[in-house]
Amino acid sequence: MTLRGRTAVITGAGSGIGRAIASSLAQRGCHLALADVNTEGLAETVSLLPVSGLRVTQHQLDVADRAQVAAFPAIVREAHGGADLLVNNAGVALGGTFEMVSEADFDWLFNINFHGVVSMTRAFLPLLRASTEARLVNISSIFGIVAPAEQVAYAASKFAVRGFSEALRHELDGTTVGVTVVHPGGVRTNIAERARAPEGVDDTEAAQRRAAFKKFLRMPPAKAGEIIVRGIEQRRKRVLVGSDAVGLSLLARLAPVSYWSIMAKGLPK
């Protein structure tokens, strides 16, 4: 897929993987409509981009707000004339066992990680269909392939993104819209620091949980963004980001029921 001169819409573009994807796309001459709830983060992303000759717009957007999402395509059409690429990257994290996580927190995460993807796709699919060649890119996780204990809400949302993306790909087969689902492993973003702690977990324990999780976040975001954008260029249906993602994906194939007993041996108690 040739990206020069195309227009990409990216959610969660104010930091981390979203910012890295924006940078890799800008380097290829792709116009950008960048969205995030954090306007300061968006401004910082734009300040880091090679924007000469590109149309780059910033949009404050909460993907869990369906009214905001429904209004967003018209804003992008007015600013850019259309869209060829939608990257559903916005996401949040929530640790804790199922019994620890409240219903409200579970719904909060799902409204962003899954329903936000669905709402954005529903809103932008008409613009993507109007393109001569378009692609929908949904960021799942390696936890959309394996499901560790104490990641019940997060893993459920990322498995849902995977299932949604694969079924939609089959429905859009033969159209101008392709679908890519991305499964990053441990990418060094701030998702652990921003993760919501379940009710009943004090600040000390929450900090310890975040610190333990951060040890597995090793890949620089810039490298992850480049892997993802290369996958888009190659029209790949699935992109695994990092050797840990590749390894765990293989483990899930070889031991689809018992992989957790193997994984757990390498985790802190």
Rank of each mutant, 00 (worst) to 15 (best):
4 R>Y: 12
226 E>K: 00
87 V>N: 06
113 N>T: 10
33 A>Q: 09
203 D>G: 04
60 Q>F: 06
48 L>I: 07
6 R>E: 06
58 Q>G: 11
139 I>T: 01
108 W>P: 10
199 E>Y: 10
128 L>R: 07
58 Q>M: 13
28 R>V: 08
138 N>F: 00
51 V>H: 01
209 R>S: 03
254 L>M: 08
239 V>C: 03
122 R>H: 09
55 R>Q: 12
185 G>W: 02
185 G>N: 08
202 D>S: 08
181 V>W: 02
186 G>Y: 04
140 S>P: 08
52 S>T: 14
28 R>H: 04
142 I>M: 00
124 F>I: 11
213 F>I: 14
268 P>H: 10
196 R>Q: 14
245 A>Y: 00
231 G>T: 06
223 K>S: 13
51 V>E: 07
263 M>P: 10
167 A>L: 07
71 A>C: 07
268 P>C: 06
260 W>E: 14
252 A>E: 13
7 T>R: 00
42 L>V: 12
14 G>A: 05
44 E>N: 08
144 G>V: 13
252 A>T: 12
138 N>L: 06
77 R>G: 12
209 R>K: 10
116 G>H: 02
197 A>Y: 09
56 V>A: 07
48 L>P: 01
122 R>A: 13
150 E>K: 13
50 P>C: 05
49 L>R: 02
255 A>H: 10
264 A>L: 10
85 L>P: 05
214 K>R: 15
247 G>A: 04
27 Q>P: 06
214 K>A: 15
173 D>V: 12
164 F>P: 10
89 N>M: 03
1 M>V: 13
88 N>E: 06
